[in-house]
Structures are given as C-alpha cells and as structure tokens.
Amino acid sequence: MVQPYPLQFKPEMKERVWGGRALENFGLELPEGAIGEGWMIGDHPNGTTKVVNGELAGLGLDVIRERYGREFFGTNGFSAKNGRFPLLIKLLDCNDDLSIQVHPTDDYDRLPEGELGKTEMWYILDAKPGAKIIYGLKDGIGRAELAAAIEEGRVMDALQEVPVEAGDAFYIPAGTVHALCAGVVVAEIQQNSDTTYRVFDYNRPGLDGNPRELHVEDSLNVTAYEGAGATRMKTDGLGANEWLSIASSPYFTVDKGVVRRPWQQATSPESFVILVVAEGTGKLGWTGGSLDVKAGECFLLPANLGGYELDGEMTVLRSVAP
C-alpha cells in the first residue's frame, strides 16, 4: 500500500470566450489563448488531472480512485450516482462576463448519462473595482415572467446584481440563476459536473465565431423560482488560526482559515480534505514530509493521511465531503 501524502495535480486549462491570462499571476503555466478555467483537481471525462508529486506522479485521479479510492477518498468520498470523485476544483479568470446560467439537480431527468447536477460555491480571490456578479432572480419572478423576459430580450431586468470584492463567499445551490461578471478571479468548489444551461449569452459569438447555444427550456425547467437556499457572506475579520464555515451543502462543506503560526490538523476516515491556498505562502507538513505551498495551489489530502500541520502566512480554503 502506498503511504498517503498530499497530492498535487497538473491543472487542465480550458480556453473560454470570457477568459484571460490572470491565472499566470499564480505562477501557473497557461497555453495560448483566453484561458478561463483551470481545473485543479478533476475526475471527469472532460478533464482528469494527473498527479505531479511523489510516488503516484503521472497517475490520473481516475486511476487513483480505482486503485486506492476507499483508503484515499474516505467513506463519503464518492458520488453515489456515478462512483467518481465527488468534487471538481477550479480557478476561474473572468476577463469578460460569463453567460447567464443555471445548473440542474442530480435528479433532473434530462441530465446526460452518468452526469451529476451542479451545486457549487465561489470564493472571490480578486476583484477589480466595481466588479459584480448576477446572483438569483428578483422577487416575484416566476417561470412565466422569466420566460417572457428571455423571449423579449430583457432577461437582465429579472436578475439581481451584487457587487463583489476579494474575500466574498457565495453558495450557489443547483437551480440558482447566476453569472460571474468581468474583473473577478474565483476559486470554485463544485459537484463533479460539467452541465451548464445557458439562459442568455449577450448575443456574442463563441470561440468558433458562431453564437453559443442557449438552453432555454432546460433553464426554465431547473430554475428554483422560490429560491434554492443560496447564501453569501463577507469573510474578513477572521482571527489567526481560526476556521470560518463559508459554505455547507449535502455535497461539500467549505471553511476558510487564516494561518499565522503552526496549526495542527487531521483528516478523518470519512473524507479526503481539499486545501486551496487563496493567498500568501506557507508550509504543509505531515508524517514523512513537508511541502512549500503558495497562493493558487490546490492539494488533495487522503482520508488516511491523519495528522498534518499548516504554517506560514496564508489563507486557505478547506473542503470535505460531508
């Protein structure tokens, strides 16, 4: 049996019409083009990341799941629907507005075979002055009102806009109409899904020069008109070596921690731990080794790792499968 250790992966970079080059600021290597998404930890047909460190280097997360899944992922660490790793971890560079979109729940009957619904959360890593997001419907907007707004080209009138700044956290359950807008860099923790229904895309061409497909019927079907339980919060003011719960769902819980001195932690047999370094630098230590870590890096700590230590001057996001 392999001794467990924190796994780091080579990101899968995705060109997007709304992307840019901001992920280079984390020291990440980007291919040519407008890079909108870095899939940092993924086990999906559209993007499976490979380990870059330690004795499992070169293996994809899918292979690790097949070989070591029970020990490494923990008793909660699998999607009940398709057996894959349950989460997908991304960094997003929103150089332009994303489409207005909504995601289905796991039980939507028109989901592609083997695909999950998509509940997600965002942590704003960086935001230009005046940056905003689209976050939910205005009061009183039901299916008929949303359908009419889409049909008449005035969908923005039906949506709430929220200003954002670095450190804001947003929980976005499936069924919440939403969009990131230009000028934000975001860490996204989500169900392991690549299903998005576009409500509106500003009538712009895609990377191929053609208009991007809209999914109006699916969008109207899956939108939670009474609200799906979306929440948002400011997360500043956190003391040294304290955790703050910033998102809680049936699929993941996410805490923010501010590391200022050595801080002892431990994994549990129930779940892996994912650490996203949101800012700063530090060390991640465990029995048998340590790593220098910095903003923009993401690590998968196996459930059977046991004790580990965070140290340095950094902000981290910690995600587990509940």
Rank of each mutant, 00 (worst) to 15 (best):
Y123W: 03
E32H: 10
A278K: 06
H103K: 06
A22Y: 11
I274N: 00
S319R: 05
T315C: 07
P250F: 00
S271A: 09
P173L: 11
G42S: 13
A295D: 05
S99G: 10
S245T: 10
F272R: 00
R204T: 07
P262M: 05
L146A: 06
I35T: 08
N95Y: 12
T223D: 02
T315N: 01
Y197A: 06
I35S: 08
Y68E: 13
E152Y: 11
L317M: 05
I41Q: 08
R212S: 12
R198A: 11
V277Q: 01
A224I: 13
Y171N: 04
F299N: 01
E309A: 12
K128P: 05
G20Y: 01
L275N: 02
E37I: 09
M1C: 10
L28N: 07
G47V: 04
G20W: 09
Q265M: 14
E71N: 06
Y5R: 11
E151C: 04
A149D: 01
P6W: 03
I89N: 02
D109M: 11
L23M: 15
L30T: 02
L300T: 02
V177S: 03
Q191M: 03
V164Q: 01
L291H: 14
G74V: 12
V316L: 04
I172P: 00
L111P: 05
V254W: 00
P11C: 08
P31M: 14
P45R: 07
T75L: 13
N76C: 11
K294A: 11
V320S: 03
L137T: 09
W18D: 05
L275D: 00
L146R: 06
G282F: 02
Y197M: 06
L7K: 06
R154A: 12
L317T: 04
P262T: 13
L284I: 03
E152V: 05
C94F: 06
L28M: 14
S193K: 12
L291Q: 07
E15M: 15
N210K: 12
R154D: 07
R67V: 07
E217G: 08
V276F: 15
V293C: 01
Q265D: 12
Q264K: 07
V184Y: 01
W286F: 08
V17E: 14
D255P: 00
K234W: 11
M156G: 14
D311C: 07
L146M: 08
D107A: 13
Q8S: 13
E120H: 13
A158E: 04
L56F: 11
S248H: 15
R143A: 10
S249Y: 11
